[in-house]
Design a protein around this nucleic acid. Structure first.
Lengths: 202, 202
DNA sequence: GACCAAGTTAAACAAACGTTTGATTTTGCA
DNA sequence: TGCAAAATCAAACGTTTGTTTAACTTGGTC
């Protein structure tokens, strides 16, 4: 097991610590220690603590946007493209759920710099969602849901398991009724597409 | 406009600042200044900064749990009780969306004290959801969704608007296609109950 | 009017914060 | 081999952090 290059070690440790303690609560000395790197290297590579956060956000959005582009476009029906997108997204969220937590839960920061940074990514995502989901949906079913609602709804729903994971593992200490990631994907997909109560009666 | 008592002023300012900057990023001096209260009063009333956070969490969960108890129980159908619960919850989230943000987004803290504090509330919520939603759902439709999945899914979906609000207001700077809170409630309810694509065909 | 408790204050504590500096080591190319 | 650029380091910078202390003011009760 060779040690990764220092910059990657910093990023890896930062994602881990930020997701666990939050951005502001994580000190650079603790981070440097975990990454086995000198304190000054963080500012050397990333300019500042905020620069480090931006790079983490970029990594998430780049991948998430790539998944959206790949899975949402195509000649298939809206239903098929959506379930494809959900499956890939949840799989990515699961694989990198620390990056997801940093991106989603670190949201309410008032820093206009960070917010605008996120917004520029979200704008691209909104463009894709509008073209590939919202407009087809409006044509097919007459339902008008703007992408600035669709994006949060979709992402929140898919991220729910990971957002609440630290608490929910404490809620049922026994492993009973624990659902694996495939079952979770299935549940999210079915709920999003067909709803909880999809019986034509009632 | 009479000034509220000091303890309430602290709570109010804390919710505002924590939701905007995060718990760790908010200093007690800034908080004391905003609340027009001496610095030492915070520890006098709440014991510690963490104690202050716990009291905010308690305020949210107490109200959220009360809504769940009131709106989910009753002789009505699952669909009616669910849409009633969603309507009341979203209305509460909207009225106190800073408290919501603090409770939801400040989640990933590693502090076992805070996590267990949240878990004890979440356990009560899980009990209600299991009895009033999950078990009836299993009986009526055969779908087995444990409350530790149902809770996060429901809460995440209802909170999506508020969780992403700071970014989404930057995304579409023009007010066009902005949805009001009633339209949002309607969208969430319809999505959760009937899904995005609820046509029996296809 | 005295007294006790609750409320309020300014001041100080050590510890930790993000960042910068200047020197030193390592690396890659001529 | 030699030299310049990149990488790494220990140390210190001035602030800010959460918390505590002890003195002080206020309000109500006997």
């Amino acid at each position: 097991m060779e040690k990764a290059p220092p910059k990657e070690r910093i990023l890896h440790a930062a994602v881990h610590l930020f997701a666990r303690q939050g951005f502001a609560a994580t000190g650079l000395r603790e981070l440097a220690g975990q990454a086995e790197v000198n304190l000054a290297m963080i500012n050397y590579f990333f300019g500042s603590k905020k620069g480090l956060l931006k790079e983490i956000l970029d990594n998430f959005f780049k991948e998430y946007l790539a998944i959206a582009k790949q899975e949402l476009t195509g000649p298939e029906s809206l239903r098929i493209r959506l379930s494809r997108f959900i499956r890939s997204s949840v799989r990515y969220f699961d694989a990198e759920h620390n990056i997801l937590l940093v991106t989603i839960a670190e949201l309410p920061h008032d820093d206009p710099d960070i917010v605008e940074h996120k917004a520029s990514w979200a704008r691209q995502m909104a463009g894709i969602l509008d073209r590939e989901i919202c407009q087809p949906l409006l044509k097919e079913t007459g339902r008008d849901i703007p992408p600035t609602c669709m994006g949060p709804m979709l992402t929140s729903l898919m991220a729910s398991r990971f957002l609440f994971l630290p608490v929910m593992t404490q809620v049922n200490a026994q492993q009973a009724r624990r659902v694996d990631i495939d079952r979770y994907t299935e549940m999210i997909t079915e709920l999003f597409l067909k709803g909880l109560i999809n019986t034509p009666t009632d």
